[in-house]
């Protein structure tokens, strides 16, 4: 199911994840969020950018438990908890944020 961003057609898989990770840009993230009726705030970007850095470093999208812990380590306990992350990403922080970040679905996520 391809999406169109700035006149360019971007391939995604059947669940909406980017087919080619290297095509990612911020406008793609915004368009994916728009489809979900979600406007990306600074707090969203913090998590999206964190995920992109994590993937760059370790070559995986972290499981939600790992993401929560790692966010807490980096951004403090008021952000490193499920309540905060689920409020930002109601479809599941790892799943939804990874999609906007142009990453594959986290390993072990069904």
């Amino acid at each position: 199911m391809p999406i169109v961003v700035n006149g360019q057609t971007i391939e995604t898989d059947e669940e909406g994840y980017l087919a080619n990770r290297t095509e990612w840009n911020e406008d793609i993230a915004k368009e994916m969020a728009r489809v979900d009726n979600c406007e990306l705030s600074q707090n969203h970007w913090e998590v999206i950018n964190f995920l992109r850095e994590y993937y760059e470093e370790y070559q995986i999208a972290p499981a939600v438990r790992v993401l929560t812990k790692a966010i807490g380590k980096k951004l403090g306990p008021d952000k490193g908890n499920s309540k905060y992350l689920y409020e930002l990403f109601p479809y599941g922080p790892a799943k939804q944020a990874c999609k906007y970040a142009g990453l594959p679905k986290p390993t072990g996520c069904v």
Binding site: Y54, E57, Y58, Q59, I60, P62, A63, V66, K69
Partner: peptide
């Protein structure tokens, strides 16, 4: 191979 370094987080 970089993923083995993430095992600690798990």
């Amino acid at each position: 191979s970089p993923t083995y370094r993430a095992l600690e987080d798990y």
